[in-house]
Design a binder for these strands. Structure first.
Lengths: 255, 255
DNA sequence: CGTTCGCTTGAGGCAGCTCAAGTTGCGTGG
DNA sequence: CCACGCAACTTGAGCTGCCTCAAGCGAACG
């Protein structure tokens, strides 16, 4: 991929390999992920502003990094289509997956803190994202209270989500963690119009383990156990929920 | 404590027992926690605005709750003096401590997400806090880019902090967790002008365990082990660091 | 067609948990 | 002022859920 004599944000972006800029210019107004990116009660003027803010959309190839630890922070990203994992690591190389992100989710909010990213974000499939430069977000926030509130909520939701993750990691058995994970994934997929009984796991067993704080063998065994108990049916990455109530019984969470 | 026929925010506040409003009106300009609450490059006009925003300061008695899960969200709080724990729970009563907060730290940011708090915040000693109503924060953010950025950074820092916590919870041995905890506490206390070798633990062994994802017996044993290895000296809540390098060797983090 | 990757399953080990007993310090009431 | 009760903590002994190590299998891919 050729490096271009570009300036500012563009320079940074082209440094990352296997990231190409998509030609397509899509309007936020009729974007299928609009309900996830933007507040409901946003007016036409604001939508138009947002539209102009999203300077570009980009395609990220499966396996390549959208964000690397230490990278300068310039923008928040919204996923149009695709699937990502976000991880943090120690110097010694131990890695923990902080989350999986799908259509409509946002990426890169950790960068605001210090102007440098403190996580890695990797595409688990070919993905398409929108770029929201942070200074544009700040500008728009100053004139649009609705958008301002929306952006603050995005950050706060991430805080709440992570708190819940910690609760899992510190207290729950392997079976509960795996069951909650399945529940959570299907919930989010259903909200995006997919089946709530069948899904394709985008991640390996290793990655599930890195997310849930378990080893891959434990993930495998736990899935086998759930399968054996006729709660799920699993074949490699393809998963079907047979007994929704059974899952609820395990997690204690009414889906 | 009598309930007063007050309206709005006041009504909510007075509902919580053992919370009294302090009479003292202190200026943010010469507050000792200013460096933690406010950006450095804030100008006099902005300071004055912030000052007027902080409608009131409150005293929270040891053991009482500043925030309860489910409570309507109205404000962010900054700690002037004192010490708090923040926890999240399952319906079944399992509790995880998300963090400990001290002078200059902020509380309640989880509430922005849904307009309801999703955590409990309890004072571990008599404490003094400043109240920043969220709509005032939003107003000021619209006219002061410096403050706007500062507030976004506060939220983002919490996201980063929680990510690091998850890394601990999912990967580290009990010894590393406890050592990191001690390092982290002393670091923060030092930044506030306290000794970096001696500290008074404000929390019980149970609470340390709830934070670190360990049982109280494990905390106790691990502290004993560190003490036996002459890395720390511990007597009930009083802790002294004897071998800073030893701590670093355990955590792998250069303090 | 061989190699690699992702996954499953088994056997054994161990870190942290559970259960239990005992100590210490502190507030409280006689 | 002492006796008592309680909360916080320490320490020991045994248990267990998850980890480690190891072997094997099927699908994808060059």
């Amino acid at each position: 991929m050729p490096h271009r004599a570009d300036e500012g944000l563009h320079t940074v972006l082209t440094k990352i390999e296997e990231v190409t800029r998509s030609k397509t210019k899509v309007s936020c107004a009729n974007c299928h992920t609009r309900d996830f990116c933007l507040p409901q009660n946003i007016n036409d003027y604001e939508i138009d502003r947002v539209n102009r803010i999203v300077q570009m959309r980009r395609t990220i190839k499966k396996g390549s990094k959208l964000i690397k630890t230490g990278m300068a922070f310039h923008a928040i990203y919204a996923i149009r289509t695709g699937f990502f994992k976000t991880s943090v690591s120690t110097e010694s190389g131990q890695e923990h997956l902080v989350g999986f992100q799908m259509t409509g989710d946002s990426l890169g909010m950790d960068g605001i803190a210090t102007q440098k990213h403190s996580s890695d974000v990797i595409a688990l499939e070919d993905s398409d994202i929108c770029v929201f430069p942070i200074h544009e977000i700040e500008n728009l926030s100053r004139v649009s209270p609705v958008f301002q509130r929306h952006f603050l909520q995005m950050l706060s939701k991430e805080i709440v989500r992570e708190s819940q993750s910690m609760l899992m990691l510190s207290q729950m058995s392997a079976e509960i963690r795996v069951a909650s994970f399945i529940q959570n994934l299907t919930q989010r997929l259903r909200a995006r119009g997919f089946s709530n009984t069948e899904l394709l796991l985008r991640m390996t067993r290793v990655e599930m383990g890195q997310y849930l704080g378990l080893k891959l063998e434990t993930i495998s065994r736990t899935l086998s156990k759930l399968s054996h108990n006729n709660i799920i049916e699993i074949n490699r990455r393809h998963l079907r929920i047979l007994d929704k109530a059974g899952l609820m019984r395990i997690t204690g969470i009414s889906d």
